[in-house]
Structure formats: structure tokens, C-alpha cells
């Protein structure tokens, strides 16, 4: 893999960066969906995120990244009891992926050459306790989407095929990116993403020039560029780690809960997932900003991220859904 562009060096796109940081702090948020124009740094940001994530302890050689030997699935032949520390897995789900690659399947090699029945784990196993990144998520084939929906909800991958009966944990954070011009995303999948961001090209000339300058500098000498940004990267990483530590201690007042509920009712968001996500995101933001409790400012800040993809589509309202959320937030929270 080539060197990733440093996260802190991404110009502008604050909402997108904030959404990524919030999921890194609170994995239970349920991931990020980044939708936007071509060339706005969607994929760059996701790949940069990987470098920011803290490492996790896993059992050496375990196909599902179990934290301790007792959790290793019985079908896996894990020899070692040793626990090693490795980077949080960020698994790419390529577009042309087959169902077998995603869920895992009968190990064709062993079946055909040795006549043995064995399970070959797929991408979902590798993504356990990590991130699953889907570029151009709106172009993903329907049957793969169905699979992902099911597993993302249950946190467990069940394989019942070709005489195999295997299950293993698959808890991962979905990160998707795509260009809305190329196709819509099914509402069911939309709802599975905790936060959603719409990115647009920067309109400020100076900002654009800065984008081009940094990208060009990176292209010409990646290592030197990454070294230049080392300090800022470390700074963000430390803040994420600190926020994870204080997350549970961050208070949520009843007033904040009431605000969440009122916002979701006013927006007509389906289900209760909106409130939960809004609350968790606001708490993560409070922790990130080292605040003791969740305030209305935090809610105001994360409401477009947590709610804009949960609205019913209104064919006549041509302003984006983020604008609608902002309007309602202004109405409800004053």
C-alpha cells in the first residue's frame, strides 16, 4: 500500500473530518457515509483515518481478531495463545467482490485438492473489531448490500452453505463513500450509517489553491510531506484517545435528551435510531472538546451529521436535507 495522505493536512471539509473523528471516538455510532462531488477528498479522508486509529490487542493468527484466546471461533485453528498489538483493521470492500469473499465460504482449494471440508473466512471476519470501507457504496450490487445489512445489524456473520454451518462475530464500523450522481442508496442501507456527510468542492479560491498546493507537495515527496505533518497527526490521535477515556464520564442531562427527541420529532425522522445516534455523537463531540456535559451547542453541531440521511425525501424541497436539518435545528433549539 502506498503512503496515505495525512488526515490533518486535508484542507477544509470540517464536517467530514469531524464525522470521522467522532466514529473513531465512539465506534458504536455506526459509521460514516460520505457523499459528494468528484475529487473532494472522500476516499483520501477515509484512507487517512486508518493512520489515526489506535492499535488493538488481538490473538496472534486469529482470523476474526479476537481479543483473547477464549473468544477464538472453534472452526479456526489458532495455534498461538500469544496476544499481539496490531493496527485497527481497515478492510476495503471492493466493488467487484463476490459473496464468497465477503462472508467466507467453503475453502475451494482444500475441497478440490484434498477433499476436505473447511471454512475460509472472508472480509467480514477480517473486519471484525475494525472498519469496513466501501468506496462507491451506491454502486454495490444489491445482493452484497443485503448481506451487509444483515451482518451489520446482528454483529454476527452466519454462513450456512455447501454443508458448512459456521458463525463468527463480525462487529465493524461501516464507512462508505460515493457520488450521488451515480446512483441512490437504498434507505435501508442509509439508515445503517450513523453519520452522513455531504461534501462539496470548496468555493473559496484561497482554500482551493491550498488544496492544490498540499496535494502537489504530497505527490512530489510523500515521505517528507508526511513527516512535516507528524506533529499534527499525533495531536489528533492523542485527543481521540483522551476522548475515548472520558466518553463514559461525560454527562447527558435530561434537557439534552428532551432536545434530541424534540428535534427528531420535528424532523419526522423514522425510528429511534436518529435520537440514539444524535445523543452518542453529541457525547463524543463533548468528550472530544473536553467538556463535562453535553450542551445544546454540541447537539446543534452534530445534528446535520446524525439526522440528514434519515429524513423522508421531499421531492419539492430542492435544498439539501442538511439545510432542512439546520432550519429545524434553528427552530427547535432557538
Amino acid at each position: 500500500m502506498t503512503t496515505a495522505f495525512p488526515f490533518s493536512a486535508i484542507v477544509g471539509q470540517d464536517q467530514m473530518k469531524l464525522a470521522m473523528i467522532l466514529t473513531a471516538i465512539e465506534p458504536r455510532l455506526g459509521g460514516v457515509l460520505v457523499f459528494g462531488d468528484r475529487g473532494t477528498g472522500k476516499s483520501t479522508a477515509v484512507r487517512a483515518l486508518a493512520a489515526l486509529l489506535p492499535p488493538i490487542p488481538v490473538v496472534e493468527g486469529c482470523p476474526v481478531n479476537s481479543p483473547n484466546p477464549a473468544d477464538c471461533p472453534d472452526w479456526a485453528t489458532v495455534i498461538s495463545d500469544k496476544t499481539i498489538v496490531r493496527p485497527t483493521p481497515v478492510i476495503d470492500l471492493p466493488l467487484g467482490v463476490t459473496e464468497d469473499r465477503v462472508t467466507g465460504a467453503l475453502d475451494i482449494e482444500r475441497a478440490l485438492t484434498r477433499g476436505e471440508k473447511a471454512f475460509e473466512p472472508g472480509l467480514l471476519a477480517r473486519a471484525n473489531r475494525g472498519y469496513l470501507y466501501i468506496d462507491e457504496v451506491n454502486l454495490l450490487e444489491d445482493h452484497i448490500v443485503d448481506l451487509l445489512l444483515d451482518v451489520a445489524q446482528s454483529g454476527e456473520n452466519v454462513v450456512e452453505r455447501e454443508g458448512l454451518s459456521v458463525r463468527h462475530p463480525a462487529r465493524f464500523v461501516l464507512v462508505g463513500s460515493g457520488n450521488p450522481e451515480e446512483g441512490e442508496l437504498r434507505p435501508q442501507l442509509l439508515d445503517r450509517f450513523g453519520l452522513s456527510v455531504e461534501v462539496t468542492s470548496p468555493t473559496d479560491i484561497e482554500e482551493r489553491i491550498e488544496v492544490i498546493r498540499r496535494r502537489d507537495a504530497f505527490d512530489r515527496a510523500p515521505e517528507a510531506f508526511v513527516a512535516d505533518w507528524q506533529a499534527q497527526e499525533a495531536d489528533i490521535r492523542d485527543r481521540i484517545l483522551a476522548a475515548r477515556g472520558t466518553l463514559d464520564a461525560t454527562d447527558t442531562s435530561d434537557a439534552a435528551l428532551r432536545d434530541c427527541a424534540e428535534l427528531c420529532v420535528a424532523l419526522g425522522a423514522d425510528g429511534l435510531r436518529g435520537e440514539l445516534t444524535l445523543l452518542r455523537a453529541a457525547r463524543a463531540l463533548a468528550a472530544y472538546e473536553r467538556a463535562a456535559d453535553v450542551t445544546r451547542d454540541h447537539l446543534r453541531h452534530v445534528a446535520p451529521l446524525a439526522l440528514s440521511h434519515r429524513l423522508r425525501r421531499d421531492p419539492l424541497d430542492e435544498s439539501g436535507s442538511a439545510a432542512r436539518v439546520a432550519r429545524t435545528v434553528a427552530d427547535v433549539l432557538g
Binding site: R38, G39, S201, P202, I205, R208, I212, R215
Partner: peptide, 18 residues
């Protein structure tokens, strides 16, 4: 200069000046 010019022609994608 190239970025400013791209903006004047209404070119949104940052890939163009790059």
C-alpha cells in the same frame, strides 16, 4: 494561477488544477 483560472471557468473538481 491555475486554480483561480479553473474557478473562472466554473470547474469544480480540484483534480483539474492538479
Amino acid at each position: 494561477a491555475l486554480t483561480a483560472l479553473a474557478a473562472r471557468f466554473g470547474i469544480d473538481s480540484p483534480r483539474a488544477p492538479l
